Simulated assay, not measured.
Amino acid sequence: MDIVAVDGLVKRYGELLALDHFDLHIAEGEIFGLLGPNGSGKTTAINCMLQLLTYDRGSIRLFGEDMAPARYDLKRRIGIVPQQVAVLEELSVRENIDFFCSLYVSDRARRRALVDEAIDFVGLAEFAGFRPKKLSGGLLRRLNIACGIAHKPELIFFDEPTVAVDPQSRNAILAGIKGLRDEGATVVYTSHYMEEVEQICSRIMIMDGGRVLAQGTNEELKRMVSTGEKIVIEVPSVSDAVLRRLRALPHVLEAGHADQTLTVRCEASPHNLTDVLGVLGAARVQLGRVYAEPPTLNDVFLELTGRELRD
């Protein structure tokens, strides 16, 4: 069963079309990556799914049932970890988690057990009595997660949960998200850190302008675009004539030389490296280290959404 089923969603803000017949289907037990540049419609889509925004057209079904503003039975099965840390400064770590859990669970004994489990899950046991202002950025992020997942939601929305945290905290957060999946939760994950999405997401959607541009597994997305491998060679110097010959090769998209490094970006082809080395060998270019990098999710994202700056 699809835990999330969104079909033909249209949302307008006056003349602005924020969602243009947007479709999204997420199966139970997935970590689904939702990617897009600023203003692409990600947050609008999520807020519509959560019934925090009205929409003009389309249908939203969660857990196989129609979602509506008054479907509190469905909302109790959902957890939200927002990008901005949302905790109460006057409460301790334990009190914060208990407060947010109490919005879903009224039984105190059960809630106490859930709070203890959430504290252990995010590794905050030794900080349970601390107030938020005494926590580092990484610990605050982990508290934010604990507040969103303490009630054991079946569907969890993570909105950039690793912004501005150190690598150790980031690894702990990503491991925790995979742990939630292993315990049966379905996760919708948004981030601008492409390596994180590659690491943990089973399927990925790239959207822009309120529309779906592409979706699939990490490997499927890489096969959808022309971007192939990037060949990097340590070369003290390369003449303009050699660069022109490289750019003229059948599958080469661009070639440039800077800081004693030649970089050649190619379309997918089994002969790219052989062709590039053939041109350099014919010109008797002195070569240093040579390596080829496969396309990354970042390459796919930029090819689909463009390279211009966004506000």
Rank of each mutant, 00 (worst) to 15 (best):
L34D: 03
D98P: 01
V290M: 03
I173Q: 08
V87G: 08
G184L: 09
L297K: 11
T54E: 15
P270I: 01
H271S: 15
L19H: 06
L34M: 10
I97E: 01
V225T: 12
R170G: 11
A68P: 02
N218P: 09
E254F: 09
A214V: 09
Q286S: 15
A45G: 05
D166K: 05
N272F: 12
L88D: 11
K152V: 12
Y291H: 15
K75L: 11
I26W: 00
N218M: 05
S202K: 11
G176W: 12
L309G: 02
N38L: 01
N96L: 02
D240I: 00
G209T: 05
G179L: 05
T217M: 06
Y55C: 07
D311E: 14
L213F: 01
V264R: 11
K11D: 02
V197E: 08
L88T: 11
S191Q: 00
G281T: 10
T261D: 10
V276C: 02
A27H: 14
G256H: 11
I231P: 05
L273F: 09
E308Q: 10
S106H: 12
R57H: 15
I200N: 07
T43K: 06
E293H: 09
I31F: 09
G33T: 06
R71M: 08
G29V: 09
L246R: 06
E229S: 12
V187D: 02
F99H: 12
S136G: 01
G58N: 06
D107Y: 08
L52V: 12
C147I: 05
L221N: 10
R108D: 13
R284Y: 09
T54H: 13
G179N: 04
E293T: 10
E196K: 05
D275M: 03
Y13V: 08
Y189W: 02
R142Y: 12
R265M: 13
E95F: 01
I60M: 06
